[in-house]
């Protein structure tokens, strides 16, 4: 009796062992088939990979790898002559604790972004929307007028003439004529005027790709939806805009937001060409100009590690604000 029992027990145990073994084998084979499937999938789509390879190599070399390098360099001290030296978080500590000019640049960038970002976004949509209601023949002309500033290269230098500091400057002479001022104002070298002027010029430049995207998106909204909405009791154009148009345009709105945020945080070249480098009392200094001050090969500083830390901060600001805004836009019309 006892013997039989132990034998049974032993049998059970060996059985369990065998079962376990088989289970393992099955698992292994399924894993290997998965691996094989994966390899097969890769092989099957080798044409796709071949087609993408040329672009992706360039994309990786000039977009993705530079971002990674920026992060890596930001923890080092590097002057392009000697090998980079790891210094931990020193660059970031210096930026926030010992670099007063950076804090000015940060403040200016935030002011510019908070004003020009939303304003240019609203302008781009508002004007695209109004143009869409114009008669067909006028639409093309108006689109051109609004889009022209952003495609005309460095035509923004004209603002230099308009804001010229002598009495021949257009705005000075206009105000002198009206008797509002008695002597010409030094527009571009008075710190108090720097940011407002930069905002005006940036708004003038800002109706770019997102404006076109809105224009195009509005044309594709189904007309019958408006008619249905009118029957359903939509009373004015604002309700129509909120309940019909905007929800239909969500994807374009997201795209436009990405473009406008990136632009408004990246203001820099306009500041340099209008106000010089550095501008009077750093009044038009932005993160980008600060970056160029340290990291451009034209500058005498060549502190690439420090400049990379600035770039990383700018990068994080752009990503963070983009992700927040995207979340907000997804709620539109609900």
């Amino acid at each position: 009796m006892n013997k039989k029992y132990t034998l049974k027990k032993a049998n059970k145990q060996t059985l369990q062992v065998v079962v376990n073994k088989y289970e393992k084998r099955v698992k292994k084979s399924s894993l290997s088939t998965k691996k094989a499937n994966f390899k097969k999938a890769l092989k099957r789509s080798r044409v796709s990979y071949a087609m993408m390879a040329p672009y992706l190599i360039i994309f990786l070399t000039f977009t993705i790898i530079p971002v990674i390098m920026s992060f890596a360099l930001s923890f080092t001290n590097y002057d392009m002559l000697q090998a980079p030296k790891f210094i931990g978080l020193d660059n970031y500590v210096n930026l926030f604790l010992h670099d007063e000019v950076f804090l000015i640049a940060l403040k200016n960038t935030l002011i510019l972004a908070v004003i020009t970002g939303p304003l240019s976004y609203i302008m781009a949509f508002l004007f695209a929307w109004l143009i869409n209601e114009l008669p067909h023949k006028l639409r093309g002309l108006m689109t051109l007028i609004f889009y022209a500033p952003s495609i005309s290269g460095n035509a923004y230098l004209i603002w230099q003439l308009l804001f010229s500091s002598d009495r021949y400057g257009y705005i000075n002479s206009f105000l002198l004529n009206l008797g509002i001022i008695n002597e010409p104002i030094y527009w571009l070298s008075t710190p108090a005027y720097a940011l407002p002027i930069l905002i005006i010029v940036q708004l003038w430049l800002s109706l770019g790709v997102s404006f076109l995207s809105f224009r195009a998106g509005l044309q594709t909204v189904d007309r019958t939806l408006y008619e249905a909405a009118a029957i359903d009791g939509i009373r004015n154009r604002w309700q129509e805009l909120w309940y019909v148009t905007l929800p239909q345009m969500k994807s374009q709105l997201l795209f436009g937001a990405v473009m406008q945020i990136t632009n408004s945080l990246g203001i820099g070249m306009v500041s340099i060409s209008l106000f010089g480098m550095p501008s009077t009392e750093y009044s038009a200094h932005t993160i980008v100009t600060h970056l160029l001050d340290f990291g451009s090969t034209n500058s005498t500083r060549l502190e690439m590690g420090y400049a990379s830390a600035i770039a990383v901060i700018l990068f994080l600001m752009m990503m963070a604000s983009n992700l927040i805004i995207q979340k907000l836009i997804k709620r539109v019309g609900s």
Partner: peptide
């Protein structure tokens, strides 16, 4: 990856690009 890389301007990558 492509959508995310629309989100940052070239100013961010100017230094490494020069090195590359």
């Amino acid at each position: 990856l492509i959508v995310y890389s629309l989100m940052f301007s070239t100013a961010v990558t100017s230094i490494p690009i020069y090195m590359i």
